[in-house]
């Protein structure tokens, strides 16, 4: 995917975002953008503020100053549960699956934003409400099949190995047909083989979908990203292609101060 810096029309962007949490300046004047159709990476040493950027983008936190812009529009006072309706979907660090629901039910809930029938229709067992759920169920099954985990549809998360749980979580975030997918450390706790598969999968979503990736595993980031933003101590210190970032002295300095690239 092609992009030109500075970005003119990013699909999703933070504009001069600053935030202070319990007296600490976590982000300072952070402007990053995610061009449409790319896989964009957000990296930085521990405590750089990557997850805070995600949390601001998903409405968990409101910045002290600055905006989040999506598709040209400012997102003000976004409520987290409205995000999927807008076309933004995210995964949570770890897995964040619902423990008392099966894998299939978990994935079905990913489509909640599009469900039209309400509680009254549900309680009376209206045919259209049932029909809607059946369609959603079929779509969830399809997604699980795509992810190669159709056989675990009726299993509960606690019965599944960690990498499979991760896949279910990603399947859940994809079923809402998001324009932008925010992946928070998707490679955490999975094997090298699974990671290669994950990278291939992420690549395959573009250019129909746009991906913003926060990840510790540099191999994965370098392999799949078109554009990378580097945060350190709450500030953007570099951006560019994987090559540019890899050779950027500021980035090297930041990471050497941490513990070295990719641990």
């Amino acid at each position: 995917m092609k992009y030109v810096l500075p970005l003119t029309h990013p699909l999703l962007a933070t504009e001069n975002v600053s935030i202070t949490l319990s007296g600490l300046q976590i982000l300072e004047d952070v402007s990053i953008g995610v061009p449409e159709g790319t896989v964009t990476g957000l990296i930085g040493p521990n405590g750089a503020g990557k997850t805070t950027v995600f949390n601001i983008m998903s409405g968990f936190l409101t910045p002290d100053s600055g905006n989040v812009r999506f598709d040209g529009k400012k997102l003000k006072h976004i409520k987290t549960h409205h995000l999927t309706k807008l076309g933004i979907s995210r995964t949570l660090q770890g897995v964040g699956l619902f423990a008392s629901l099966t894998a299939l039910e978990n994935v079905m809930l990913g489509g909640s934003a599009r469900v039209k029938s309400g509680i009254v229709a549900d309680s009376l067992g209206m045919p259209w409400a049932d029909h809607e759920q059946n369609k959603l169920r079929a779509k969830a099954m399809e997604t699980l099949t795509e992810f190669g985990i159709a056989d675990v549809a009726d299993r509960y998360p606690s019965e599944l190995p960690y990498p499979v749980q991760k896949r279910v979580a990603i399947a859940r975030s994809l079923i809402s047909d998001p324009k932008v997918l925010l992946l928070d450390e998707p490679a955490g706790g999975i094997s090298a083989g699974d990671m290669t598969e994950l990278g291939r999968m992420i690549k395959s979503w573009t250019p129909e979908r746009t991906v913003l990736l926060v990840e510790h595993h540099m191999e994965l980031v370098m392999e799949v990203c078109d554009l990378i933003w580097v945060l350190d101590a709450g500030k953007v210190i570099a951006s560019g292609t994987p090559e540019e970032v890899r050779t950027n002295p500021a980035v090297l300095a930041a990471y050497l101060g941490d513990e070295g690239v990719g641990h």
Partner: peptide, 18 residues
């Protein structure tokens, strides 16, 4: 499913649009 999801993990529920 929606009720259980919110009970299990309200943050994850909000993220999926509930």
């Amino acid at each position: 499913r929606v009720w259980k999801a919110v009970r299990d993990d309200p943050v994850a529920a909000a993220v999926v649009g509930i």
